[in-house]
């Protein structure tokens, strides 16, 4: 994943698209010779990988790029849990919530990550917008099954799958992401 930009400029995302992102967008569209609309998800991924989230200007820009209406893109952003309209933490911690990980102690691991990251464990953390620590460094959220049920509890920390996590080990894991 690209290094995510910080959300401080106040300038619309579509006014600061770098050349390499444009290049990758053009390349992704060629994967769908039958229908450009099919490139909606790939473009949203490229966008979020670069900017960290998807703002209104992105919805407009992507829809124009693919000859669609803005609603065709917005309805994807609001449907798919992966996409965000607000920035997450620079270190994004997605803890598996589902049964096998829960049996192995996933809820305790989530709480331990919250403590280590300085996030209220009672915050709503099962939607599109996870709670972020005051310094913007960490976000912690629950996600559904990450398909690594035999090595639970697992979490996705940025792009890394971390397996067999214990509550005691949570703080040590986060310290590697400082």
């Amino acid at each position: 994943m690209d290094k995510q930009e910080t959300h401080t400029t106040g300038i619309s995302q579509s006014d600061r698209i770098p050349a390499d992102l444009l290049f990758r967008i053009d390349e992704a569209v060629t994967h769908y010779p039958i229908s450009k609309r099919s490139a909606s998800l790939p473009l949203l991924h490229l966008w979020q990988n670069h900017f960290g989230f998807i703002d209104d200007s992105a919805v407009n820009w992507i829809s124009k790029r693919l000859d669609l209406e803005p609603i065709n893109i917005l309805e994807l952003v609001t449907f798919y849990p992966w996409f965000r309209q607000q920035p997450a933490g620079k270190v994004c911690i997605r803890v598996c919530r589902t049964l096998s990980c829960a049996l192995a102690g996933g809820f305790e691991v989530r709480d331990a990550f919250c403590t280590a990251a300085g996030i209220n464990p009672n915050a709503e953390m099962h939607g599109h917008t996870p709670p972020v620590s005051a310094d913007g460094k960490f976000s912690v959220e629950f996600v559904e099954c990450l398909a690594s049920c035999g090595s639970g509890p697992v979490a996705l920390i940025n792009d890394d799958l971390v397996e067999d996590i214990t509550p005691e080990g949570a703080a040590g894991i986060l310290s590697q992401y400082h």
């Binding site: 994967h31 769908y32 229908s35 099919s38 490139a39 998800l41 790939p42 798919y80």
Partner: peptide
């Protein structure tokens, strides 16, 4: 052959939903 990435929705494992998702629609 091209790779198409999902975006966190379990329903896309349903075959017709997966197809809608590749078509760029709500699945």
């Amino acid at each position: 052959i091209y790779v198409h990435q999902g975006a966190g929705a379990y329903i896309c494992g349903e075959e017709t939903s997966l197809i809608e998702s590749i078509e760029g629609k709500r699945p």
